[in-house]
């Protein structure tokens, strides 16, 4: 377990090493669900929730199941099954106990299983051998960072819908250019967080 303050991991995963803007993870849904601010924000919230839960769960699975049983070579399969199962359970639980939330987030849940950001966070956390608290805060930070990025993109795309763009530029092309500019701005954050 690296001797890094979990709070710094949390802040860095939002700003300096944002899931989308510097790790390129979760791009598929980032691009396809960002034409409307409200929907995008809903998806962001769902991703954050799932990220926190899977980070915690996969950390436990890795530490208490995969390592003791020497199954490291099967880890990808195990992680993805844990994620898929968790998303399924979460959907059923939401449907039953919080129908309001389910109405809001339910449609996004199936999309999340194949969101690379979720598996990505798990793999990064394992490869960097984070402890439990570090993992959970990393998951939370990554989720918030993803949420922030997709909300910003969606907000800008709403305005852009009315703009006159060169032919072929509207849609994914302009989204990438905007994302590039956002990524450049986020580079400005690097150096804020000092490691003791």
């Amino acid at each position: 377990m690296p001797d890094i303050n979990p709070l710094i991991i949390f802040l860095a995963s939002i700003a300096t090493s944002n899931m989308v803007l510097s790790n390129f993870l979760g791009m598929c849904s980032y691009l396809s669900v960002s034409s409307e601010y409200k929907t995008a924000s809903g998806l962001g919230m769902a991703v954050t929730l799932v990220l926190v839960l899977t980070s915690a769960l996969n950390w436990a699975v890795y530490t208490y199941l995969i390592v003791p049983l020497d199954l490291v070579y099967l880890q990808y399969v195990i992680f993805i099954i844990v994620i898929a199962a968790l998303v399924q359970v979460l959907e059923m639980a939401m449907d039953r106990y919080t129908p309001d939330l389910h109405a809001k987030l339910g449609i996004f849940l199936p999309l999340i299983t194949v969101n690379c950001a979720i598996l990505g966070a798990t793999l990064f956390m394992v490869i960097r051998s984070y402890g439990f608290v570090q993992s959970v805060l990393y998951g939370l930070g990554s989720g918030l960072g993803w949420w922030l990025a997709i909300s910003m993109l969606a907000a800008m795309r709403e305005k852009l819908a009315k703009a006159k763009l060169p032919p072929g530029m509207s849609g994914p092309a302009i989204s990438f250019i905007i994302t590039g500019i956002m990524a450049m701005a986020f580079i400005g954050f690097s150096g804020i967080f000092t490691i003791q």
């Binding site: 530029m169 994914p172 092309a173 989204s175 990438f176 250019i177 994302t179 590039g180 990524a183 580079i187």
Partner: peptide, 16 residues
């Protein structure tokens, strides 16, 4: 990272 976004954005633009 930003360069990757700019390049792929331009390629998609050209293609579409």
């Amino acid at each position: 990272p930003p360069a990757a976004f700019f390049i792929i954005g331009s390629m998609i633009w050209a293609m579409s």
